[in-house]
Simulated scan of single mutants.
Amino acid sequence: MLHFEQSSLIKAPIEQVWQFHEQPDILHQLTPPWQPVQIIRRQGGLEVGAISEFRLWLGFVPITWVARHTQCDPPHSFVDEQILGPMQSWTHHHQFTPEGKHTRLTDRIDYELPGGLLAEWLLGGWVNSRLREMFRYRHDVTQQALKHHS
């Protein structure tokens, strides 16, 4: 099992950071423009049972990725898990922790690549570097969107 974590201090109260993530178009806002990802659908908000579906492009090959929210504790956390996609397993924990007037936003992902230990050894560093790029972008977008709320 591989692990990834990105944490940032967002200069806004926890309620506003949570509300930002509840927006209907949040996936469009948080998807880096350089990534070959198409958002197909989002059903529900952050609550348990909500579904997000993406089409990823690996060269010319489309890959469907579907995630379902399995836990939700407003305004502190929610969890989504891959139910269809390229990973052997994928669990993404979104944590919102108050720090004074600000919020610590932490994304933690536990995942397994298809192909077992050899695939993880060969590709794990590359996958983590792609995740680091994506979550830096997401946290920067969140910070910028909420900068006037501190």
Rank of each mutant, 00 (worst) to 15 (best):
residue 29 Q to H: 03
residue 146 L to A: 06
residue 5 E to C: 08
residue 55 R to G: 01
residue 132 R to N: 02
residue 15 E to P: 12
residue 40 I to R: 10
residue 145 A to N: 12
residue 16 Q to N: 11
residue 104 R to T: 13
residue 91 T to H: 07
residue 67 A to I: 04
residue 10 I to E: 00
residue 98 P to E: 06
residue 107 D to T: 12
residue 97 T to M: 04
residue 48 V to I: 13
residue 116 G to T: 13
residue 24 P to R: 14
residue 9 L to D: 01
residue 86 P to L: 00
residue 85 G to V: 11
residue 72 C to Q: 14
residue 30 L to A: 04
residue 76 H to T: 06
residue 70 T to A: 00
residue 133 E to F: 06
residue 104 R to L: 15
residue 21 H to F: 08
residue 87 M to F: 14
residue 88 Q to E: 08
residue 11 K to N: 15
residue 107 D to L: 01
residue 21 H to W: 03
residue 15 E to K: 14
residue 36 P to D: 09
residue 122 L to I: 09
residue 110 D to L: 09
residue 77 S to M: 14
residue 140 D to C: 03
residue 100 G to L: 04
residue 130 R to A: 11
residue 131 L to T: 10
residue 70 T to P: 03
residue 50 A to Y: 03
residue 25 D to Q: 09
residue 92 H to E: 05
residue 62 P to K: 03
residue 54 F to S: 05
residue 39 I to T: 14
residue 4 F to E: 08
residue 90 W to H: 10
residue 89 S to P: 09
residue 26 I to S: 08
residue 120 E to T: 10
residue 65 W to S: 06
residue 131 L to N: 04
residue 34 W to I: 08
residue 120 E to G: 14
residue 11 K to T: 13
residue 144 Q to I: 01
residue 111 Y to P: 07
residue 58 L to T: 13
residue 86 P to D: 04
residue 84 L to F: 12
residue 70 T to C: 01
residue 109 I to W: 04
residue 102 H to L: 08
residue 99 E to I: 15
residue 86 P to C: 00
residue 97 T to P: 10
residue 30 L to K: 07
residue 5 E to Y: 04
residue 52 S to R: 07
residue 150 S to H: 15
residue 127 V to I: 13
